[in-house]
Each structure stands twice: as structure tokens, then as C-alpha cells.
Simulated assay, not measured.
Amino acid sequence: MFVLHGHPLSSFHQKAAVAFYDTGTPFEFAMLDLGDEAERARFTALWPFGKMPVLEDRARGQVVGESTAVIEHLAATTPAAARLIPADPETARRTRLMDRIFDLYVQAPFQRFGDHRREVPGARDEAIPELVKGQLATAYGYLEGALAGRAWAAGEDFTLADCGAGPALFYANRILPIADHPNIAAYFERLKARPSYARAFEESKPYLDWVPF
């Protein structure tokens, strides 16, 4: 039995949820409220870093943190999810690279932007917004070329690399629009049409007012 601990607004939770939805893998969702001290204590007892998502694989007695590792675990233990990590070594390498590109160069900058917006005006570094936009522009330049001629991030098949791309691009697009990058924009439209991402995004809608940008 899989139990996924997270919150629908979290882009990294959405990434893991997309993997489950896309492969039709059943799981129990344990929604987190880390503002509740008792709940935070229970969660950090399970995963001391206190970051979501976290997967409990109760059948195997394992706890797996970090969204990429969660999906790797799912692919390794569930036949229907094995396709998320391609069997071909070169395609698997490309899949993991694109996963890192979205996490480190699209997700990380917009999270920094969100942290900046939550800080008290007058006490925050006002250089951060332009720095983040520059980082996203670099990522967009890379992705525009990498996605040329591909249906999905690593090739013709939906993989690990695509699971986090929808949430990453949704939030990043609110900071630096992707409209001037036709390959990225078309890819994002395909992601939005994918039932797995559409479901994860729909679950986030009640909480979008919490996003500070």
C-alpha cells in the first residue's frame, strides 16, 4: 500500500501525484498541514527533513522522500509505472537530465521568487526578481532547443521528466511568460491536456490564492 504525504499546492507534490495518476497506480493521500505543530512533529518523525512529498511504501516497510526518488521507487516496484524510466540507457539518461533541468532551473528560481515575495517589504533583496527572471530566461533558452521535435521532454514517451514539468511551467509562467518560446508553449499545452496533470492541477485550484505572485 502506498501513502503519499503532501499538499495539492506543492509543485513537487503535484509531480509525484502525476506519476501515480498517469500510471493508474492506487495510493492513499495524506494531506499535510505543516502549520499545525503536532502534525509537523508527526511528519518530521517520519521524514526528518520535513519536506514534501514523502511516500510510505507500507508493503515494503520503506519511506521515500524527494519527488524524483518517489517516482524512481514507483517505477522500480510497480510494473505499470516502469515506463516512467525508459529501458534504453541513453533515453533514461536524457530523462533524468530533463527532470533535473525542470527541478533545478525552473522550479528552484520560482520558489526563490515566492520566498522573496513573502519577506517583509524593506527587508528583502529587491534584486531577486530580476535575478530569477534571468535564471528562467536561461532555462527557457535551453528548453526551447531541447524540446524541438519532441512530443515529450525526453522523446516520444511520457516519462519521469514530464511529471514535474507542468507544475514548474505553470508557476514559472506567472513570473516570466513562455509565450515567446513556441516549443515550450506547445509542450505546456500538451501537458495541460494530459489527464494526469489536469487532475493534479485541478486539485491545486482551491489553494492558488495562497501563491504570493
Rank of each mutant, 00 (worst) to 15 (best):
M1G: 10
M1F: 10
F2N: 03
F2G: 02
F2T: 00
V3P: 08
L4N: 01
G6S: 04
P8G: 02
S11P: 10
S11R: 09
A17S: 13
V18Y: 04
A19K: 02
A19M: 03
F20A: 00
F20L: 05
Y21D: 05
Y21N: 02
T23L: 07
G24F: 11
P26W: 07
F29T: 00
A30R: 15
L32N: 01
L34T: 00
L34E: 03
G35N: 13
E37F: 13
A38Q: 10
E39W: 10
E39I: 00
R40E: 02
R40I: 00
R40P: 01
A41D: 15
T44K: 15
A45Q: 06
W47P: 05
M52W: 08
P53C: 13
R58C: 01
A59L: 14
G61N: 08
G61T: 04
V64A: 08
G65P: 09
E66H: 15
S67R: 13
S67W: 11
T68K: 07
T68A: 14
A69C: 14
L74I: 02
A76Y: 12
A76S: 12
T77Q: 09
P79W: 14
A80M: 15
A80H: 13
A82Q: 08
R83G: 15
P86Y: 13
T91V: 08
A92Y: 12
A92M: 09
R93S: 07
R96Y: 10
D99R: 07
D99N: 15
F102H: 09
F102S: 03
L104G: 10
Y105D: 06
V106Q: 10
Q107G: 04
A108Q: 06
Q111C: 15
R112Y: 11
F113A: 03
F113L: 11
R117I: 01
V120K: 09
V120C: 10
G122Q: 10
E126T: 01
I128T: 03
I128A: 02
P129W: 12
E130S: 06
L131K: 10
K133H: 09
K133Q: 14
Q135A: 11
A137W: 09
T138S: 12
T138D: 14
G141E: 14
Y142I: 04
L143G: 01
A148N: 08
G149R: 05
R150H: 11
A151C: 09
W152C: 00
A153E: 12
A154C: 07
E156C: 08
F158T: 00
C163N: 06
G166M: 06
P167W: 12
P167R: 06
A168S: 09
L169F: 05
L169V: 03
F170W: 11
Y171C: 07
R174C: 12
I175E: 12
L176I: 04
P177M: 06
I178E: 15
D180K: 11
D180L: 07
H181A: 07
H181M: 14
P182R: 06
P182K: 04
N183V: 04
I184H: 15
A185K: 12
A186Y: 13
E189S: 11
L191I: 01
L191K: 03
R194Q: 08
R194F: 14
P195F: 07
S196Y: 05
S196E: 05
S196F: 05
F201G: 01
P206K: 03
Y207T: 00
V211E: 13
P212W: 08
